[in-house]
Simulated scan of single mutants.
Amino acid sequence: MLPNDPRRPAIEAPRVHVVDDYAEYRDGLLYSLRAEGFEARGYASGEVFLAEPLWLRRGVVTLDIDFDPPGSMNGLQIFNLLLAQRCPMPVIFLTGPHGNDMDLALDQVGLRGRADVHFFSKQAPLDKLKDKIRLFLAREPALRREAEEERRLLQLVLDVLTPAEREVISRVLRGQTNYGIARELNKEEGVVELQRASAMKKLLGDSRSPHLLVELLRPLLDRHGAESLTALAEHELVHRLGLLDPLARDVLMAAVDGRSDTQIARAHGWLDETDRERRHRAVVQGHLDRALALVQADAVRQVRKWLGYFGPCRPSSPSPSPSSP
Rank of each mutant, 00 (worst) to 15 (best):
P3T: 05
D5V: 06
P6M: 13
R8S: 03
I11A: 14
I11W: 04
E12I: 11
A13N: 15
H17K: 12
V19K: 04
D20Q: 10
Y25G: 09
D27A: 05
G28H: 11
L29D: 05
L29Q: 12
L30Q: 11
R34F: 10
G42T: 05
S45C: 09
G46A: 12
E47M: 03
L50C: 13
P53C: 06
W55T: 04
W55Q: 07
L56W: 10
L56Q: 07
G59Q: 14
G59H: 02
V61T: 13
L63E: 03
D64W: 00
D68H: 12
S72P: 05
M73S: 06
N74S: 10
L76M: 13
L76Q: 14
Q77C: 07
F79E: 07
F79G: 13
L83F: 07
A84Y: 06
R86V: 07
C87N: 12
M89I: 04
P90F: 13
V91G: 08
V91L: 12
F93W: 05
L94Y: 03
T95H: 13
G96M: 11
D103H: 12
D103P: 01
L106G: 11
G110W: 10
R112F: 05
R114A: 12
R114E: 08
D116M: 09
H118C: 13
F120Q: 02
A124T: 07
P125L: 05
K128A: 15
L137C: 02
L143I: 09
R144T: 10
R144G: 01
L154V: 06
D159F: 08
D159C: 15
L161S: 09
E165F: 10
R166C: 09
E167M: 03
E167L: 07
I169R: 12
Q176H: 01
N178M: 05
N178W: 08
Y179D: 04
G180F: 04
K187H: 10
V191P: 02
V191Q: 14
V192H: 07
V192R: 04
Q195H: 14
R196V: 05
A197W: 05
A197T: 15
L203N: 14
L204T: 03
G205E: 08
S207Q: 07
R208P: 02
H211W: 12
L212K: 14
E215R: 11
E215L: 12
R218K: 03
P219T: 10
L220Y: 13
L221N: 14
D222I: 09
H224A: 00
G225L: 01
G225K: 00
S228L: 06
A231K: 12
L232C: 03
A233E: 08
V238I: 02
H239C: 01
H239T: 02
L241K: 04
D245V: 10
V251L: 03
V251F: 09
L252A: 03
A255M: 06
A255K: 14
S260A: 05
T262H: 06
G269A: 11
G269I: 11
R281C: 06
A282M: 01
V284G: 01
G286F: 00
L288E: 04
D289I: 07
R290G: 05
R290M: 00
A291M: 03
Q302G: 10
V303F: 13
F310E: 07
P318G: 09
P325A: 14
